[in-house]
Computed example of a mutant assay.
Amino acid sequence: RAAALGRKYGLSVEVLDDIALEQQGYGGIIGVGKGSSRKPRLVRLAHTGAKDAKSVALVGKGITFDTGGISIKPAAGMDLMTSDMGGAAAVIATTIAAARLGVGVSVTATVPMAENMPSSTAQRPGDVLTQYGGKTIEVLNTDAEGRLILADAIVRALEDDPDYLIDTATLTGAQMVALGTRTPGVMGTREFRDLVAERSRAVGENGWAMPLPTELRADLSSRVADMANVTAHKYGGMLSAATYLKEFVPAGQAWVHVDIAGPAFNSGGPWGYTPKGGTGVPVRSLIAVIERIAETG
């Protein structure tokens, strides 16, 4: 669907299948997707803006269904995990919208897609994988899979040397604990984070800036790898997930992570202009930020 839509609206399209992902070292995407009969993909869609225009890299979590893997989720509410590709859908939609609107900014979506299933081929708690780019990760919880596929995609997106990087994901239940189901958490480099949060509120998507406390990094330490994929405690889970992603973003790169675990999918009744089901959050926020970058550079 992403490739077909990209071609329809004149975007350049690239799809890496599971064989290419394995050969090129995308250990996070392969690790998460290897338990499923539906093999993982990495999809890239690009809108080329005006000459010498700024560039924006978008990365979105595309877990097409999330059982939790071997660290399996409770049955109650698991049916809602069809929504775990909300970040992927949002960055695909945003890139298409940028092309249709003819924004001068160049926009590239790098979208990892996988199904997180338990099976005889699934990754196990305690396995060590190597992310794209070389960092080794001890997978303590296979249900903390979104950060594994996002990290691969972030490193790939940064190879294009973008001026700005935004990733978005239905990443943590902790987002809803901290901010409820209608308020995305916005984390990242301070100036860009504040711009994204302000633009999000201006278009009615209610993004709220959150900190990345430096002490959380130590809680991701591993005995056998460069990092573990989760901390040993439940505190600040949304911030810890973003801290994990921060490890793949070089100093000086303008970067924002938007956690949309609650806001991307409305499991209750309609409210305002928000329907039941997928809400489209944060497409309006992303387009608003891209248009601001086009105006101001």
Rank of each mutant, 00 (worst) to 15 (best):
G6D: 12
D152K: 07
A264L: 07
A261I: 08
P184Q: 07
I63R: 01
V91G: 09
L11C: 09
S55W: 03
A97N: 04
A151V: 02
V32H: 07
L58R: 10
A57N: 06
G10L: 05
R1K: 10
A144Q: 03
G133R: 06
G269I: 05
I260R: 03
Q175A: 09
E159C: 04
G204F: 10
K246P: 00
L195K: 10
K135M: 12
T95S: 10
G62T: 02
M210H: 01
Q123F: 15
S240P: 02
Y273K: 14
V177D: 01
L140Q: 03
A261C: 14
D143E: 06
T130V: 08
V32N: 09
A153F: 05
L21M: 11
G297I: 05
T64E: 10
A93H: 08
V111T: 11
G146Q: 05
K73G: 08
E291T: 13
A93W: 03
S222I: 04
I260H: 04
R201M: 14
G62A: 04
N206R: 15
S240E: 05
A114H: 06
A157V: 03
L171R: 02
P263A: 15
Y132V: 00
F265I: 06
P250K: 12
G173Q: 03
D52A: 14
G35I: 07
V258D: 00
T110Q: 01
L165N: 07
V289Q: 03
G236Q: 11
T142W: 05
F265E: 12
E198L: 10
A202L: 13
P125A: 03
L129A: 00
A144E: 02
N116L: 03
M238Y: 01
V15L: 12
A53H: 08
N266G: 12
M85I: 04
V105G: 06
R190V: 07
V289R: 02
A4L: 13
P275I: 04
A254N: 14
Y164F: 15
D226Y: 04
A261Q: 02
A228F: 02
G68F: 07
Y26L: 10
Y26K: 11
P270C: 08
G35C: 09
I290M: 03
L140W: 02
R284N: 12
R292L: 00
